[in-house]
């Protein structure tokens, strides 16, 4: 009995942890860490020393494929005139440097520190005019409700409505939006990396973009999202079905195993034992109502 009681206690403790009332932030105010992450580039120095650092890092890490002047090669595209926002997105998300040019890059921990990333991006941006500079996302006065609406209309068709990301046809995938920064969101929306379309200010206005950033960074990430427990990766009914069948039905069947048998655990239901003579009243007596109980 000790073990089941322990399991029940453990389960109750787990329930207490997961179902601890979470504070719903009625105003949806961004947390300090996310805001600083979104604004990291604006506080970094933009001077000759930073440009020189960016040039060194570019020469060391990027030029072997993209060329010493970022003019591109047979292996990699021309980066001149793309603007620093594109470079910042690709490097900060860990897509670059790329191990295998043939496949869609996956997000991984960035090879560079945030200040190094910005230095590279600004250096590449300084090589030729044009493109978008690293944007500064201002969430002052943003409206997550409008952001949710714009997100559902423009982003959810690929990234899914929970932002979990998913495989699209032809081997490409929409990456998950968990753990992205506001700057990366704006850069991706405005520059359209890879297979993602580019959304101009005619489609998603500057205010709407701030709204989307607000929604994604605060409600896709879940810190302020009301709970309900484990989110199962946000993939919806597939994960729910597995939990329902294996934990739910499976758990109940295990309980049935626990309480259902008297002594059947040795697979003895097969009828190897001889029947007890004490209750044998012979096949001749027609007594379908006769029932025999264990003593």
């Amino acid at each position: 009995m000790a073990a089941p009681a322990g399991v029940v206690l453990l389960a109750l403790a787990l329930a207490a942890v997961f179902y601890a009332p979470r504070q719903v932030r009625a105003d949806g105010a961004p947390t300090a860490s996310l805001r600083s992450a979104a604004l990291v580039d604006a506080t970094l120095p933009n001077n000759a020393a930073a440009l020189a650092e960016g040039r060194t890092l570019f020469d060391e890490n990027c030029s072997s494929c993209h060329g010493t002047q970022a003019q591109g090669s047979a292996l990699a595209p021309n980066l001149r005139g793309l603007g620093s926002a594109t470079v910042d997105l690709w490097v900060s998300s860990g897509w670059m440097p790329l191990a295998n040019p043939g496949v869609q890059p996956a997000r991984k921990p960035s090879h560079f520190t945030p200040s190094q990333t910005v230095a590279i991006a600004r250096y590449v941006g300084s090589l030729a005019p044009g493109g978008l500079a690293i944007p500064t996302v201002d969430l002052k006065g943003s409206n997550p409700a409008e952001g949710f609406s714009v997100f559902a209309l423009n982003c959810a068709p690929c990234h899914t409505i929970t932002g979990a990301g998913d495989a699209l046809s032809g081997g490409i995938a929409a990456p998950p939006l968990h753990g992205v920064t506001g700057t990366q969101i704006e850069e991706a929306i405005r520059t359209g990396p890879g297979n993602m379309p580019r959304f101009s200010t005619f489609t998603v206005s500057k205010a709407q973009l701030a709204d989307v950033v607000d929604y994604v960074t605060h409600y896709i990430e879940h810190p302020d999202s009301p709970g309900g427990g484990l989110t199962l990766g946000g993939v919806g009914p597939v994960a729910e079905g597995f939990v329902g069948l294996f934990a739910g039905v499976g758990g109940c069947v295990l309980i049935a195993l626990w309480i259902g048998d008297r002594d059947e655990r040795d697979g003895d239901e097969g009828g190897s034992g001889p029947s007890h003579p004490g209750h044998d009243d012979g096949p001749g007596t027609e007594s379908p109502e006769r029932e025999v109980a264990h003593a």
Partner: peptide, 30 residues
């Protein structure tokens, strides 16, 4: 226990249905 610790059908993330809105990766219940 499941109801307490595992989220199911978080409709606040899905939003209201409109015929012109769609999410990728939609499955029915199992």
């Amino acid at each position: 226990l499941l109801g307490a610790i595992v989220q199911i059908n978080p409709i606040w993330q899905y939003g209201q249905y409109y015929a012109y809105k769609v999410s990728y990766a939609v499955q029915p219940d199992w």
